[in-house]
Design a protein around this nucleic acid. Sequence first.
DNA 1: AACAGTACTTAGCAGGCGCTGC
DNA 2: GCAGCGCCTGCTAAGTACTGTT
Length: 579
Amino acid sequence: VPAPSVFPAWPRPGSGCSRGFLGVCSRWEEEKKEDGVKWMQLEHRGPYFVPPYEPLPEDVRFYYEGKPLKLSLATEEIATFYAKMLDHEYTSKEIFQNNFFHDWRKVLSLGKSSWMLISPRLCFSDGYRWWILQTAPKSKLKEEANKIQEEYGYCILDGHREKIGNFKTEPPGLFRGRGEHPKMGMLKKRIMPEDVIINCSRDSKIPEPPEGHKWKEVRFDNTVTWLASWTENIQNTLKYIMLNPSSKLKGEKDWQKYEVARRLKGVVHKIRAQYRKDWKSKEIKTRQRAVALYFIDKLALRAGNEKEEGETADTVGCCSLRVEHIQLHAQLDGQEHVVEFDFLGKDSIRYYNKVSVEKPVFQNLKLFMKNKDPTDDLFDQLTTNFLNKHLQHLMDGLTAKVFRTYNASITLQEQLKALTNPEDSVAGKLLSYNRANRAVAILCNHQRSIPKTFARSMQVLQEKIEAKKKQVEEAQEEVKKAEEEFKDTKDPKAKANVEKKQQLLKRLEEQLAKLNVQATDKEENKQIALGTSKLNYLDPRISVAWCKKFGIPIEKIYNKTQREKFAWAIAMAGEDFEF
DNA sequence: AACAGTACTTAGCAGGCGCTGC
DNA sequence: GCAGCGCCTGCTAAGTACTGTT
């Protein structure tokens, strides 16, 4: 989708300032590119290749049937991949072990069938593991990393030096899928220059492959944004080297995404009316589309593309929901027409929710489930493609995922409006911000595992609060005492003392309030991940405007990386920005 | 219409770094 | 100066969406 023509020149419409943010003038004054063209100039060094495997010292051994065994270099390398993961739950899973042994046997010199029978845990001596866990000297490592970053971490795009996101090829290792992945434990091959396609501009300095090697291909395609790509061997899919989110290219795309979501705001009422009408359609297909869209809109479900069976973990989104993933309750907990959702979504994160839906939705669901097996598709006539075609027809650029962006951002804006108290302290306002952010994270089902140290650190915080309470009480006593003394003596010195004690009390009370806020925030946040919504769903201009309106420093909301990513929004949004 | 292929965004986790409190 | 812990960053898997081919 080309950027809508209504877009003002980034970062600020008609500001009269020819110096954009970062003080670069020309960056914002480039002529428009043709449709689909992403750049005119692209120059870079190609990917950084992870160094080759270094064999283990002689005294570190691998044991087979109780006896130390010398492995070939390739075999040994793969053994270290496994050894590094011994502490992880992965290695106890049968699928992981089977996949690993299957791939390892292919390079193994022994070729004995008994390999399959050994418990892999027994194969690695303590000395071996100890060596694996050892760390190399740090200062030197860091220096080296900086050098590599300088050399490979940037490219020139249309005359500007831009940071690259991932400029290193992925190192070889054992594939770690999420959830019950059928391919977990398979060997991820080392990427060689011969696997890599380079993309750059024809007239640029074309990157040199490492000595003695060749690129798979060098191409000059300015309709795509990637600098290099290769095909990984586990799922046979492409991997790319692309720009960092701080780059102009990515920033503009991000901005555009939120502009599409803002346009949805204008037509969403019409769309909602339409899908309600479609619940009564004669066509089952249309009804299914309308019910699915209702879920996507109301519950912020993902679209749910079809997946190849057996190739990935069994997860679903809206269009791929199966009968077994929902339960219907005519009545539940005093609510009518309740749908109980229970399924694994992206990254095998569980979605569990009980929702009271409108009656026609409930009736339609009953109809869709009639005479079906639990493993049958709920929306058997529906594909994401069909749904998106319909959405495109309703609004230019509209797809299923836009609803997530729209609902997330509008929720943040509404929650901020509802929760922020101008009288609050900065800490209090930040709690409100986090709560608004949290409402979105809950809507989008962004979960995290409870941190291992959560209970302990919570206890520590509680103890701090108790201690502070005591201090406050003592300070109150002190104030009282001082006041009495002043009443008796009328001594100006005693008056000064009263003021001093009052100030101390005030300070302590503020500290206590801050601690209480902290504890509340922590507790409410233990299983919710705020980062994903902040980074991908919330129009940053809403947050920037909020900060400006309430005098909150932007650093309290966005860390350095985030400020770089959202530089466009920080430069652009005033306090009166409305999503 | 099904399907494979491609390009891009979105996602949680691990490990390291730097800050805080002693 | 040091330990513990929380935040940040890098990593890469896993989605969405669209295109071209049959």
